[in-house]
Amino acid sequence: MPKKIDAILTQYGRKQDELIPVLQGVQKEYGYISPDSVSMISRYLRISENQIFGVSSFYAQFRFTEPGRHSIKVCLGTACHVQGGATLLDMLERGLAVECGETTPDKRFDLERVACLGCCALSPVVQMDQDIYSRMTVNKLTELLKIYE
């Protein structure tokens, strides 16, 4: 059961510069930023809901829909790109029948791309939830997906 939003908000000061930390805190707890959360944040920080949405939609980190059970992040950093990261993403998009940035209809996976995970020497890498898998291939990835239900 996630914490009440009030409990999250009161950890922060009531200033505009706390907006991004607040959004991060809320997303960590709920997995996404809902309209209700925005409304509560607005009252707490005294920033209009529209401005909050403007700020949060600028940053790739924030999402406004409920996330799936597992997140797949395909690294498309330069090193991963030259080592075939895009092929992995292609394969996932096809295999899961979703576009990058979407959640599978069964809510099993979120498919995302990231700019760089900083593990360039082990490229291409894929992050499943919190674990990073290095030197991935199309076939290794197919096997890997089976572990995550």
Binding site: Q16, D17, I20, Q24, I47, V55, F58, Y59, Q61, F62
Partner: peptide, 25 residues
């Protein structure tokens, strides 16, 4: 302060905007 996923925030003025809780422009 944790960034929130915007490459442009490496730019000084955008970074400042981001810390101030604004769009990182």
């Amino acid at each position: 302060k944790e960034g929130a996923g915007a490459f442009v925030c490496g730019e000084e003025t955008a970074l400042i905007g981001s810390i101030e809780g604004k769009r990182g422009m």
